[in-house]
Amino acid sequence: MVKMIIWVVAYLILAPFVGGLLSGIDRIISARMQGRKGPSVLQPFYDVLKLTEKEKITVNNVQDFYIVCFFIFILVTGCMFFAGQDLLLVIFTLSLASTFLIIGAFCSGSAYSTMAAERELLQMMAYEPMVLIAAVAFYLHCGSFKVADIVANDRMGFPYMVAAFIGFVFILTIKFRKAPFDLSMSHHAHQELVGGLKTEFSGTTLALVEAAHWYENVMLLGFVFLFFANGTTLGAVIGVVVCLAAYFLEIVIGNSFARMKWPVALKSAWFVAITFGMANIVFLYYR
């Protein structure tokens, strides 16, 4: 119980720093890949702090409610993950949070954010099966959906779940909002429709969306870590290294592709889920 509380508190305090730093590193690496010097590694923090000082404006009286709910439930998701709760519970809470974000964009009635909201929905539909399948794979491997049990499990999951791992890293591109699947909200201004999902968010609201993204990224990397956890220090080291490698890989992918059309996202993500994901499930059943 005490351990659980420590993890939750640590997540709540440290995740934004880790997430923000990762985002800063992302920007430097991306810049170097494009032959630029890039900003300071702390730039994402400056950006968010600056947002909080902007004039307090909004487009209607309900949008802030949805975004605050989005932020809160992203935090809840992460807390439950790091408290070692049920993996499916974590996934469903994450969907709840995403739904709030999407409704926040829809509610403005603006053409740009509505379009992005629908694209975000499409992305959700694209990645959700693979995420669920990955969770099922953990369950079949460890006999439990609980994150705490999966972490404490003494057989590393990765050798039994290589296919599910590949599938999960594939949909991570969508979750990290990287090209070619950054349909609803992009880091690259040159391929964005105005501001995508963020079009009608401003000031503190936008700051919350950014901060939630940091929290979410850390949680997602935690998910990657689970594939390697086996209760030993070595497993943990491998896990952290692979998490960083996966993050770097996503940056590389993000910089080497242009945004693709939406059918590619849906087709490829579902294809990966059916082939890699389901093959792994069948393997785990009949092993």
Partner: peptide
């Protein structure tokens, strides 16, 4: 398992787009 994973994803899609339509302030 496959049916429920893919079916649930589609379920969220069609409900949320309707929810969005209802929530939009015009």
């Amino acid at each position: 398992v496959a049916a429920i994973c893919f079916g649930s994803a589609a379920t969220a899609f069609y409900w949320t787009k309707w929810l969005g339509k209802l929530s939009a302030i015009v």
